[in-house]
Design a protein around this nucleic acid. Structure first.
Lengths: 227, 227
DNA sequence: TTTTGTGAACTAGTTCACAGCT
DNA sequence: AGCTGTGAACTAGTTCACAAAA
């Protein structure tokens, strides 16, 4: 506790996230998960080396990633776990509650709605949307209400939805994304296969299950057979 | 048809997939999806430029990606759609049926089992595994049988399972992966959060939903607020 | 002419190595 | 002593630009 306040140096003129690559932000998220566990385990300090050994990463990489945002470490000691954890939560915007909407109440959408990984770390699945009469008005097993997609604009404003997850069949994906954008949502996680168009100010991140599987298939076809 | 046979030059001494990066194989998968659509639409030839415009990619990138595996194009013309499609299917190992097992018959596992994106392009969800008595012996909505995880080794051999998808809660993931590896499965798609250890000859690919969401959160916290 | 295939140039990302702080 | 923060060196990935082919 005594030392923690010493470490809070907001740092020069960084906080310039234009230059921070997505690879870095993904790693920050991984570091945070690790720090959460260390914190829960009562570990007080951790060096970049020790952190690097957990995943197979280079220690300098970790120091560089963190250095984009400030000088959080103490030379000769390492990083204070609770302190760094708080900083990462703040950098990643997890110090506030983020409201997530799931577009599409099919198998995948319903599974995601109740997926525990989504609920942790400040995310709240606030609403689902579908076009099928049979689904509208119901709730997911975990209690997430399913709205008519026509009400998206209204509900997005009322519930202050931050992020939309696209879990509709591929042929509908672009139309749904257009509605999400029109509703003013600025961040989208897309599970449907294929490229989607969004305006520059909207962040689109894709999870393409087909690409992932085919990449494994490539390994089996080329790599494993050759060995 | 006449021209197609001319183009099949298996090429020098390439087919050296050690050097091919994962970024390249992921793109091959994207190209293939596009070619499938072009083929269905009756388009006969496509240039690297036209292909590049579909996604926002550089044409030279596409030519380089393809050049790792052969000279599939025709100067002044482009690529024959059906021909290139067949080559990509072969390169990605999709010219044979690949059997996929899903570990964990929870919400996510069941959703993935019936997810249409998994079924296309030669993938077959052949089996699911769980440890809960209430699930073993049942089938998914789409008819995939749920086996006892204790039977993994036997079923993997019998059904010649190629790929395992990890959809169990995080605390069980490593133990399940160890069993998957012991059963001789050489390719794993992991949906559970956190790093998993596998031997070098096993290919592990992760889809980390928490990391994806937190990356969007970062954008909202840093990017959008600044604009 | 058009468009491929590819070396060369460039850009981004990672790792090294060490000065400087504790 | 130990460990961070960071310029310099290196490696990987992308784009340019053009000779060669159809």
């Amino acid at each position: 506790m005594v030392a923690l306040t010493l470490v809070n140096r907001p740092n020069k003129r960084r906080q310039t996230p234009e230059q921070v690559s997505e690879l870095t932000t993904n790693r920050l998220s991984v570091y945070l998960r690790c720090l959460n566990r260390l914190d829960a385990d009562g570990v007080h300090t951790i060096s970049s080396r020790a952190l690097a050994e957990q995943f197979h990463l280079n220690a300098a990489q970790i120091r560089k990633d963190l250095a984009y945002f400030g000088e959080f470490g103490v030379r000769g000691v390492g990083y204070y776990v609770t302190d760094l954890r708080q900083h990462l939560r703040q950098i990643l915007g997890l110090d506030r509650r983020l409201r997530v909407a799931i577009m599409g109440a099919g198998n995948l959408g319903l599974a995601l709605a109740d997926y525990p990984g989504f609920r942790q770390e400040g995310f709240e699945i606030a609403a689902m949307f579908d076009a099928a009469d049979g689904k509208i008005g119901h709730v997911s097993r975990g209690g997430v209400p399913i709205h008519d997609i026509k009400a998206l604009k209204k509900v997005a404003k009322r519930d202050r939805l931050d992020i939309a997850v696209i879990a509709v069949p591929a042929p509908h994906a672009q139309a749904v994304v257009d509605q999400v954008v029109a509703a003013g949502i600025k961040a989208i996680l897309n599970f449907s296969p294929g490229a989607l168009k969004v305006p520059a100010e909207v962040k689109l991140k894709g999870v393409d299950l087909t690409v992932s599987l085919e990449s494994l298939s490539f390994y089996l076809a080329q790599g494993a057979d050759a060995v």
